[in-house]
Write a protein that binds this DNA or RNA. Sequence first.
DNA 1: GACTCGTGGGA
DNA 2: TTCCCAAGAGT
Length: 360
Amino acid sequence: MADNASEQTTSAISRHLLAWYDRHARSLPWRAPPGGRADPYHVWLSEVMLQQTTTATVAPYFHDFLQRWPSVHDLAAAPREEVMTAWAGLGYYARARNLHKCARMVSHDLGGRFPEDEAGLRKLPGIGPYTAAAIAAIAFDRPAAPLDGNIERVVARLFAVEDPLPGAKESLRGLMARLVPTERPGDFAQAMMDLGATVCVPKTPKCMLCPLHDACDGRALGGAGELPRKAPKKARPTRRAVAFWTVRADGSVLLRRRPPEGLLGGMLEVPTTAWTEDGWDETAALRHAPVPASWNELPGQVRHGFTHFEFLVTVWAAQVPAETAVAEAVWAGIDRLGDAGLPTAMRKIAEHAIRQGGGG
DNA sequence: GACTCGTGGGA
DNA sequence: TTCCCAAGAGT
């Protein structure tokens, strides 16, 4: 590792990158122009949404949240279910629960002002090491060293770090910290992320376009595209379930709100059997039907990929009288499910059921 | 440290 | 089709 990147002074690397950022910074809805400083509420909201999520996916949600809740006080005053509904489709729903908790703490306990340093930010729910450093740098111009997937990749290549992730994480964080300039640390962090997103991309990095071309050990050694190394991933099992599509004569469908923690916690669902690797035969499945009715199996299946398992669903449908009552039920108009705030896995089940003739 | 926790797009 | 991966956090 005692090659190009170490010979150049770290300040020269930072300077090159900031000059590149002045010309190539991406224009993003939550971002101030180079040299500027964005609203801390906007920075926090965007950073939470951007956790493991692409900028293109986040943009419409960011606009919608700001329109509904222009300040952290507005968000804190919103009912939790309304926040969950607005988050529907974005995934990792613990983020929405923690976002709401965090808004309430900032609004009620901190007078609406976010802490300006990493330690203070770290105490808030949903703000981990990355997000605390990112907010401190971007919103408050603190010399913090955020380490996301992009920056891990850029740093691993720049210094030719061969140790695999996640073990090498702290080492990479230390190398990043040495690069952070005292001037414009927020722009520097965003420049590193932009570089990772547009030039130092995972496969086939565009080294000819890179402002750090001459400093990069990984490029000099010829293996930048192979870095960072990562531990092999585990295989994903399949979990199977039967979903019950219950259409009432008044044109509404039976939904339920899932328990507040865990998978899809706090979100609406189409009632299902347990999700098991073994699957279900007809007799066993129908014992879990939410109401006694004449159930019939719809053709086809719904497939949805979660992070650590594949979800495979068979749908059974039934029509029930308008006066049917079910404990804990949420009856949603079948023609207005688009506004109901279903997570994507459940939206797929609903679309499949309607397409296969379960529309009532 | 190892798991859990969504979703969409690109190669 | 399948795999990877994206501004990670909480337990």
